[in-house]
């Protein structure tokens, strides 16, 4: 298993015009109204909507919990497509441990607009790949055990 590059695709048909859905994504004021899970606020939401432009989303929750997310737009096609990177979950030194490339597609479909989100994990925390090796090692010792039991039975 390759944990250094993974992809997640989620898609949904929304009953609204493409322009409206696109605005809900790109207007910081609208975006902050739906983005955070219940009980969370978005005190800072800034989009510089052009290739290379920066984005910043701060999310705050109970007990002073705050999480800042930074990224950059890679591609912006009005009402059609948004591609941006994001980095989050800083480690003790403040360096982000996760990096993603996000592609959001807006397509007109009967009944509304289909939004398709593709998230590519560019970088996951250090050690995640090592874990795979570890799990494999663990599995192979189980395989060995199985083989041994098999030969005993024969």
């Amino acid at each position: 298993m390759d944990t250094t590059r993974k992809e997640v695709i989620v898609s949904k048909l929304l009953k609204a015009s493409r322009e409206r859905v696109y605005r809900a994504w790109t207007d910081p004021e609208q975006f902050s109204k739906w983005w955070g899970p219940e009980g969370y606020d978005i005190p800072v939401c800034e989009f510089d909507l052009r290739p290379g432009g920066a984005l910043r989303i701060d999310m705050s929750g109970a007990g002073g919990w705050l999480m800042r997310m930074d990224g950059n737009f890679v591609e912006v096609v009005d009402n059609e497509k948004l591609v941006f990177t994001t980095a989050a979950f800083p480690d003790e030194e403040g360096n982000p441990t996760h990096e993603h490339l996000n592609t959001i597609l807006f397509a007109e479909e009967e009944g509304g607009t289909r939004v398709t989100v593709t998230v590519t994990l560019l970088r996951v925390p250090e050690g995640a790949a090592a874990v795979d090796g570890l799990s494999d090692g663990w599995k192979s010792s189980l395989d060995q055990l199985e083989q041994r039991l098999f030969s005993i039975n024969q």
Binding site: K12, L14, A16, V21, A24, V119, S135
Partner: peptide
């Protein structure tokens, strides 16, 4: 350690929730 392998599943859930939340927002506004 399987939590690490279940990474993709976590993100799928996360994004499904986000899009559900967007749907509720759009319904409300409209």
């Amino acid at each position: 350690l399987s939590e690490v392998s279940e990474w993709v599943e976590q993100y799928r859930k996360l994004w499904t929730n986000k899009l559900d939340s967007l749907e509720r927002y759009l319904e409300q506004v409209q």
